[in-house]
Amino acid sequence: MDTISQSPDNFHAASGSYNFAYLDEQTKRMIRRALLKAITIPGYQVPFGGREMPLSYGWGTGGIQVTASVIGPEDILKVIDQGADDTTNAVSIRSFFAKTTGVETTTETAEATLIQTRHRIPETPLREDQVIVYQVPIPEPLRWLEPRETETRKMHGLAEYGGMHVRLYEDITRYGKIATSYDYPVIVNGRYLMRPSPIPKFDNPKMDQNPALQLFGAGREKRIYAVPPYTSVKSLDFEDHPFEIQTWDQDCAICGSTDSFLDEVITDDAGGRMFVCSDTDYCGQRMAAHDASDETETNQ
């Protein structure tokens, strides 16, 4: 039996003059109902009454509203932006929730129960007791093919997704391969075409059959969608042009990882550059483990 325990002690402590997690209770209820419908129709975009948040659109207002409706006093929150815990967006969202909820925050993926992310999925595999919330700028995968909401709604209703295949095919005719490298379209549970948010296509395979619940919030467009745990998420492709993820010739310059997503960092103005893990926690954990084993060897 699954039991979820509760300790409301810090509920009223840290939030000061704000309601817990900033949003009012009626808004949370509306978002919670939308989240439940999103889970029951995987990949379908549920409209919701998005609120004005104390930061601008494009800074994760959708993800913040989802997180605010889910978070409880027992949660341990991690916020990442492009894989990093220490970039502006991640730092400000983390401190927003620290201030309005008083929950514990962490940078360690394995320690977190709730992870809000902009544009990456952590390298450390997620577990059943974790929920990941994606910040979504444009939720509609068909938007650049069909600007009218009335039409895209109909296309989703009829599962009319041929246009997206044509777009990928045009890439092949022009470049010899599918050139889309992020926000790569997926089919969820064999039915809905979904934008995975601007994660690199490197992360797409992690969404498939993931044990964790994945929630998506788009603040400006006022849409919520979800991928339940253990659900099929398939990247669109062709038999003769199967889906492929990015690869690098280099290993991470810091930790030497050969299987993580690497960022290119310019180091000087003479063409110097290095490739390092985009997931700062993953890179740091590997370095810590490396240092620890070095120490053991020295001691022996």
Partner: peptide
Amino acid sequence: PDAQWAFRGIL
């Protein structure tokens, strides 16, 4: 807190 906790159960 009770509404949040009950919701997490349903979720």
